[in-house]
Amino acid sequence: MHLLDDWPMPALGLDCFVMEADSGVARARLVSQLAADPRIELAQPMQVFHALAEGDPLSAAQPIVTDWHLRELHALGTGRNVNVAVIDTGVDVGHPDLQGRRIVTRNFVDSGPFPAESHGTQVVGIIGARSDDGVGIAGVAPQARLLALRACWPSSTAASGAVCSSFTLAKALQFALDAHVQVLNLSLTGPRDPLLGRLLDAALGQRISVVAAVDTHSADGGFPSSHHDVIAVAGEQARDHPSTSLLAPDRGIPATTVGGGWSFVSGSSYAAAQVTGLVALLRGMAPATAPAQLRAALAPEVELGLAPRRPERIDACAAVVRVTQRCACDCIAGSTTHWRPRR
Score class of each variant (00 low, 15 high):
D215A: 04
L196K: 02
L199Y: 06
P194A: 08
Q182K: 10
P191A: 15
P191M: 06
H217M: 14
T157F: 11
L173T: 10
L149T: 11
G205I: 10
A219R: 11
P154K: 08
D220C: 09
I208R: 08
A176K: 03
V181K: 01
L184K: 03
L196W: 09
T189D: 15
I208Q: 02
L204G: 02
P154T: 14
L196H: 07
P194C: 09
A176L: 10
Q206F: 12
T168R: 03
C164V: 05
V181S: 10
D215M: 07
A151N: 07
D193L: 15
V183S: 05
W153Q: 12
C152Q: 01
L169F: 13
L173Y: 03
L204V: 08
A176P: 00
A170M: 03
W153C: 13
A212N: 06
Q174E: 15
T216A: 10
H180K: 13
A212D: 05
F167N: 14
Q182F: 14
A148V: 10
V163M: 09
V163E: 13
S155R: 03
C152G: 06
S155I: 07
V211N: 01
D220L: 10
D193Y: 04
V181I: 06
V210S: 08
P154S: 05
V163F: 07
K171V: 00
A203Q: 13
S218V: 11
S156K: 09
P154I: 15
L149N: 00
L195P: 00
N185L: 01
A203V: 15
P191W: 07
A203N: 01
A159C: 14
A151H: 05
G205D: 12
A162M: 08
S187Q: 05
L204T: 08
L199G: 04
S166R: 13
D178G: 11
F167E: 12
R198Y: 11
A202F: 08
W153A: 03
D178Q: 15
A213Q: 04
G161C: 13
F175N: 13
S156F: 06
A170L: 08
W153K: 02
S218I: 03
V211W: 01
G197A: 15
V214K: 01
S155N: 08
P154F: 15
L188N: 06
D215I: 13
A159W: 00
T216H: 07
H180A: 08
A212R: 09
A213H: 06
Q206A: 12
R192K: 11
P191E: 10
S155Y: 04
A202P: 00
A162Q: 11
T157Y: 05
V210I: 11
V181G: 09
T189I: 04
L173S: 09
L195D: 02
H217C: 11
A148T: 07
L173Q: 09
V181Q: 08
K171M: 09
D215C: 07
S166W: 01
G221Q: 00
L147E: 13
A213E: 08
A203I: 11
P154Y: 08
A212M: 04
A148P: 05
A170W: 02
A219C: 01
L186Q: 06
S218P: 03
V183F: 01
V210M: 03
S165K: 11
H180R: 10
C152T: 05
T157M: 03
V181W: 02
A148N: 02
L173R: 13
N185W: 14
L199F: 05
P191T: 10
